[in-house]
Design a protein around this nucleic acid. Structure first.
Lengths: 251, 251
DNA sequence: CGGTCCCTTGAAAACGTTCAAATATAGTGG
DNA sequence: CCACTATATTTGAACGTTTTCAAGGGACCG
């Protein structure tokens, strides 16, 4: 990204790359699939003009910070985004990881400010949607309004998944399987996946200690469930992983 | 409520009580405050016709069940509602408690089915809003659409609050303070409050054992933080409760 | 007054954490 | 290309908070 951009590239107005392009990228096409069925080209153009491609961001860069004024949601186009809050004592609490195709910023609508930080874990590019504009457009396109309601509704349930009292094994298995499924839904391999986040981030997200994550992964490998090497992970026994994760993922 | 109603009074179409009344109840007035400013009487009447007052429900009655077809959200008008899921082994997981003025069913939009059970903890009455109708109306009333977006967005954050690794004391203090604030926001006392749910429900919600809840409450009382007698609770030292809860509630 | 459910209390056990240290890896500059 | 440093991960052992197990009271309801 260009040097000199100092605060909240997502929150701040950003220039669109390839502003003369009239094609949707894959992510945009996904995000707008709801309106592309049965709507005219005017609607599609309306949607297109409020989309900006921003990035790339390098690992560690902040996409937005807690407290920044909210004015846009964003779909991850490439890379992985971590959302987290930091308390007064500087302790971080990881809220989630967002893979390509997934939307960030929905939890900022309520207070008109982002309630968490968003940090690139690797090289990230985004599709940025001005929220006031997309809300206005949603008034005219019932399909878009419905899509936004559903995106928001789905996020309510996701946040509650790890609230239960699950064992370290169950949490770890659910984490692996969730990543696998979400990658698979985007056309990546369901068996081999890359973990772009540190063990400490996984642990924090799952409510465990980093040492516990390390130990559980090692034991999973000893038991033939997975093969893990650094941040590359292969699922060998999806059935047993699924059995462990079932109580967490509810299926 | 009338006998013979067997399934999902919220999901199913229900008769409105006082159908000839043209006055909003307090909850309805609250829920529709967003549109009552600057909108004409036609809009208000449109909103009113899609509201149904349902109930009362007795303690233990199901307002809707997991898997029921979704077609309405509801605001609690009186009483307290517990939402929970039950896994394949029959173990219950409490997702939340909903006080008067709070909305239930928002997490059902995504899949068009309720993802959890809703159970009355005491005598409950509801304002039921047909979701297809309110969504249609929201297309014409930007203020209503914005209000719905904000309701949904706020719920995303609420669910994640207890995901962190907090001690039993911190969780319990946060629970007490959250109830106190939410009751106070509705005009009830912030210091004296009634707990309509069992200790086991509190424990389940907080990710603790019921015995731990009992012990923490007793110790809080020994330390002069609260007085608790059965399901009546008085906060004596709001400052220290607040200090304990701060890391959980983030303030 | 009996029954049931809810709550409380005590003691032992378990799971995961914390502390401490070794190992490995990636990044940096010579 | 290599040494060097900081960071990340792994591993071991002791500790601690919470859970589990077991039992005892107590309130509410018929």
């Amino acid at each position: 990204m260009s040097p000199g951009v100092r605060t909240s590239p997502v929150a701040a107005a950003s220039r669109a790359e390839d502003s003369d392009s009239v094609e949707f990228c894959g992510t945009c096409a996904f995000s707008s699939a709801c309106v592309s069925n049965g709507y005219n080209k005017t609607a599609l153009r309306d949607l297109h003009v409020l989309i900006e491609h921003v990035g790339p961001f390098q690992a560690g860069e902040y996409l937005f910070r807690e407290g920044d004024t909210f004015n846009a949601i964003a779909a991850v186009r490439a890379g992985v985004v971590k959302t987290a809050v930091t308390d007064s004592q500087g302790r971080e609490q990881v809220l989630g990881f967002h893979l390509p195709g997934e939307v960030i910023g929905l939890n900022a609508i309520h207070a008109n400010r982002y309630p968490c930080d968003a940090i690139a874990l690797d090289t990230v590019t985004l599709c940025r949607f001005s929220f006031p504009q997309i809300a206005t457009l949603a008034s005219r396109l019932p399909g878009l309004q419905q899509h936004l309601f559903k995106l928001l509704s789905a996020d309510i349930g996701k946040a509650a998944v790890l609230a239960g009292d699950f064992s370290a094994d169950e949490r770890m298995a659910a984490f692996i399987l969730s990543l696998s499924r979400r990658y698979a839904a985007r056309g990546y391999s369901a068996a081999r996946l890359h973990l772009p986040m540190a063990r400490a981030d996984i642990a924090n997200y799952l409510g465990l200690a980093a040492e516990t994550v390390s130990r559980v992964l090692r034991r999973f490998q000893q038991d033939g469930l997975i093969v893990v090497d650094r941040r590359e992970l292969e699922i060998l026994d999806a059935a047993r992983i699924g059995a462990l994760a079932a109580s967490v993922l509810r299926d």
